[in-house]
């Protein structure tokens, strides 16, 4: 049992009590805050960037080994089962021809979804071989060759498993970012720069495949060249838009050069007779467009 000690007796001699001035600099480091910021910031950002690059590379290695059937199962719940419109049926018929020219494996079926939105000039490959094409972008097409080049580019992303790769990288980046919430703009910036760098490599490979597919289908790469040359005019012209670090795609002159390099390699001409658009899509160009913006989102 704890026994409480008796209270201490005060000394008989009077205690001398002093309160000297509070000494400065004992409890506070003399290091300049800016030096602290740069040293700690560089260390933290460096470690984060290395982790992100390692995880990104790991995701890139793992993605091709994820069974495509898993992607299809995951994607099935997101896409509505609606009857195909005439435009969608035409797009799927052309995509089947392009996929055949690209020697896409039979267990990688491509499904094109037509999105009737004039204000979005875009197309994107998604999980499980689903590709969405917006009417805004279809309205820009002047020939079947160009449309085939566009579809080939997106199909190449499915074939290279870029969608699964991007998905895994996104998860890795989100997990890392969750731990550094308070300085998220800095780390988001690094994450985006790293992801865009991975993305630019993938886009160049998809462009090369698109050039090969159009050459195989039409005997020349004129469609891919026409697509990139004309869409270049629709790019946003802001100062920051031209910074490569912020872009997910290489710039258009470089993409045009990729197509030309493929032409030379395949010994196919860069020009030739362009095939007219299928009838179901030709009317889209003539329909009234109520959208003010014509900024390109697809690249």
């Amino acid at each position: 049992m704890f026994e409480r000690p008796p209270p201490a007796r005060l000394p008989d001699a009077p205690m001398r009590i002093e309160n000297p001035p509070v000494p400065e600099g004992i409890n506070v480091s003399g290091q300049h805050p800016l030096r602290d910021f740069f040293v700690q910031g560089t260390l933290a950002v460096g470690v984060f960037a290395v982790c992100l690059l390692l995880l990104g590379a790991l995701a890139g290695l793992l993605a091709p080994h994820v069974p495509f059937a898993w992607e299809q199962r995951a994607a099935a719940r997101f896409w509505p089962q609606v009857p195909a419109s005439p435009e969608e049926a035409t797009l799927n018929e052309l995509a089947a021809r392009v996929a055949h020219a690209m020697k896409l494996p039979a267990d990688m079926p491509i499904v094109i979804h037509y999105w009737p939105d004039d204000c979005t000039i875009n197309a994107a490959a998604s999980l499980g071989g689903h590709i969405v094409v917006y009417r805004g972008l279809l309205r820009q097409m002047e020939s079947e060759d160009e449309l085939a080049a566009l579809l080939a580019h997106e199909i190449a992303h499915v074939q290279h498993r870029d969608v699964a790769r991007g998905f895994l990288r996104g998860i890795a980046a989100a997990l890392l970012l969750a731990g550094v919430d308070s300085v998220s703009p800095v780390f988001s910036g690094i994450g985006t720069a790293a992801t865009q760098s991975f993305s630019r490599e993938q886009e160049s490979l998809a462009d090369a495949d698109a050039a090969r597919a159009t050459a195989a289908l039409y005997g020349h790469t004129g469609g891919a060249l026409a697509l990139f040359s004309r869409l270049q005019a629709h790019l946003p012209h802001g100062l920051l838009d031209s910074l490569e670090l912020t872009r997910s795609h290489p710039d258009f002159p470089r993409r045009i050069e990729t197509v030309r390099a493929q032409s030379r390699q395949l010994a196919r001409p860069e020009t030739g007779t362009l095939t007219p658009l299928p009838a179901a899509l030709r009317t889209l160009r003539e329909a009234e467009n109520n959208c003010r913006s014509d900024d390109l989102e697809w690249e």
Partner: peptide, 29 residues
């Protein structure tokens, strides 16, 4: 915001948070 940012950087790898020392000392005094 500056102090919070420096502290957030230090919190990733650990170490002495100098930026908070002046804050706590001022509060105590």
């Amino acid at each position: 915001y500056f102090k919070m940012t420096v502290a957030a950087f230090v919190n990733i790898l650990g170490g002495r948070i100098n930026a908070y020392e002046t804050l706590v000392e001022r509060a105590r005094r």
